[in-house]
């Protein structure tokens, strides 16, 4: 049962979902109301919405990701840094055990972050489209807390949160205008600099600079990286995790790039990190074409 709940994109059990079997890629689109067999003629006669509403009610009785709310205040906003530090430690040691070289460890961390970045882009933008004050009364338990997102596919812990059965009003109803999609490299970087950084670390990043040497290079500066503050004396750059997040955001927003991390210690900030975003040449070409 657990399997079915957490895995809605892969598991299809027709027995528990009599009305709809979900989208089947090999079949193509299905009509809203598949022609009902003659035996269930009463349902068909009861009107066009009979079949699907019963199906829908069958779904809602089951706990599912679709019952949760995306509202920021629907969940606890904060997670203990200590708890996350343990998780992060486990993440790193897992990567280390599976890898043969330093760069491979970093690559694994990068990939972990990448999938988070893809999700953050959609989630944060969608959230900021909602008019302020909408649906803030909700008090259900944490679902999309920072932990669950950051741990991504590495944990099953979030199953516990999937207990809400009541349907909340969708956030989309509270949206009058969707936030603008970012079309320029600077715009999307500012989104990372402010929105994303605030969401992840509780503050905006310290600086966003354009490289004076290369057209396609930008630098995000974090004087005191939060994730790696308990990590020292290693040649593994654990902030590749954050690089992955940034790259995931930029890639899925169609700004293909490479993000690398460089330690640039300063007297007051021993761990000062500079994230170098190097966009692919075609991003600039597109800029020029669309100017």
């Amino acid at each position: 049962m657990k399997q079915k709940i957490i895995n809605p994109s892969t598991s299809v059990n027709t027995a528990t979902h009599p009305g709809s079997t979900g989208y089947d890629y090999t079949m193509g689109p299905q009509q809203t109301l598949p022609d009902l067999p003659v035996s269930s003629g009463t349902i068909a006669a009861s009107g066009t919405n009979g079949g699907s509403s019963t199906a829908a009610s069958a779904h809602t009785s089951l706990p599912s990701v679709y019952n949760g709310s995306l509202h920021p205040h629907a969940h606890n906003q904060h997670v203990s840094l200590a708890a996350f530090a343990f998780l992060f430690q486990e993440l790193i040691s897992q990567a280390r055990n599976a890898s043969k070289s330093v760069s491979e460890i970093e690559m694994r961390l990068h990939r972990n972050g990448y999938h988070i970045g893809i999700r953050l882009l959609e989630l944060l933008n969608f959230r900021s489209s909602v008019s302020p004050g909408f649906g803030s009364t909700s008090s259900s338990r944490a679902f999309f807390s920072k932990t669950s997102i950051n741990s991504s596919s590495n944990t099953l812990a979030l199953n516990n949160a999937l207990t809400t059965t009541q349907d909340e009003p969708s956030l989309a109803q509270g949206i009058s205008h969707m936030k603008r999609r970012d079309l320029k490299p600077v715009e999307i970087l500012q989104f990372i600099h402010s929105t994303v950084w605030t969401y992840l670390f509780g503050r905006v990043s310290d600086d966003l600079v354009k490289s004076s040497e290369r057209d396609n290079e930008y630098m995000l500066v974090d004087s005191a990286p939060m994730l790696s503050q308990f990590i020292s004396s290693t040649n593994v750059q654990c902030d590749f995790f954050v690089c992955g997040i940034i790259e995931g955001i930029l890639d899925s927003a169609s700004f293909p790039c490479n993000v690398t991390i460089h330690s640039v210690p300063e007297p007051n900030f021993q761990q000062r990190a500079v994230f170098v975003v190097r966009f692919e040449q075609q991003v600039l070409e597109r800029e020029a074409l669309r100017a």
Binding site: P8, V12, S20, T21, A56, H59
Partner: peptide, 12 residues
């Protein structure tokens, strides 16, 4: 592909 029947049902 999004194969979830719940998703399908909701969209419909």
């Amino acid at each position: 592909p999004i194969t979830s029947p719940v998703f399908d049902g909701r969209v419909r």
